[in-house]
Amino acid sequence: MKCLKCEKDAVITLQHGALCPSHFLTYFEKKVFKTISKYDLVKSTDTVCVAASGGKDSLTVLYLLKKYAEMHHYPAPQALIINEGIAGYRDGTIIDLEKFCAEHEIPLHKKSFKERFGKDLDDAYPIINSKTKKKPCNICGVWRRYLINKGAKELNATVLATGHNLDDESQAVMMNIMKANHALLPKLGPKSGNGAHKDFVQRVKPLYFCSEKETRLYTLLKKFQVAYTECPNVVQSYRADVRDLLNTMEEKYPGTKSAIINSYLNISQLYPTQQQVQIGSCAQCGEPSNKTVCNACELQGLL
């Protein structure tokens, strides 16, 4: 297949046509920059912190937010990584991230489950699972979100960017619908997490409209050094089943994932805004919580 713009050999087929490497790179960057400006994800006055893992999505977000900042003369972003303590997984991505940040002159900050909660995920999981039947992703998700927000606040960040992509977001919409988690639906979207509590840092997702396949191709063409590893715990997750289901649908009916998030964006206007859903503070740690004791402290209490 030939590129629709220049007749060179294409490297990807998108819904509107196929693209060669150079036209794909331009298309991808334009799409991300358009998402940032259309949804007002970053302003000139913002201090931006990127929640990074060293994987393809977070490196792409870091690189493009830095490029966007340079283009608009905004302050450069900083990176924050959470070490969950998952053997054979996180250590490699931390090394990739350290190299990337050094090469691109991006300040890198680190936090860990062990330092804040007293144990690595690998050690905490069997204890918590024996009492609650919770899967590793349930624990990891709660503690990661907690530490990312806390870490971003400590850096005085006004915006916390994540590498969530089209695949992540379409999965999240479907998971919340299939589990009837209606209360969580307003928290999705390219911009979320502000207004409900003074200590919540605004979350933004510059890759909201970019598929996992597009992002992998972008990092490959840009020659970013990334270990393409999958968390060993993901096979146990509900999300992995939804991911496989949506990939099957996307292959048979191209555009399915985009349709899900576009439907979500239209429907989300019917939900109350987060400013209307005020929440309180955890009695133990003071972090934002809709319960007396937040989920992170509750899980820590089981250790």
């Binding site: 087929t13 999505d57 396949k213 999958e230 968390c231």
Partner: peptide, 24 residues
């Protein structure tokens, strides 16, 4: 070189599949 799904692959060609799924 990354190739698209319509490309004809011949005998003796060697393909590498790169997973696009990473993370958790």
């Amino acid at each position: 070189t990354v190739i698209t799904l319509d490309k004809e692959v011949q005998d003796d060609d060697v393909l590498t599949l790169l997973s696009v799924i990473s993370g958790g």
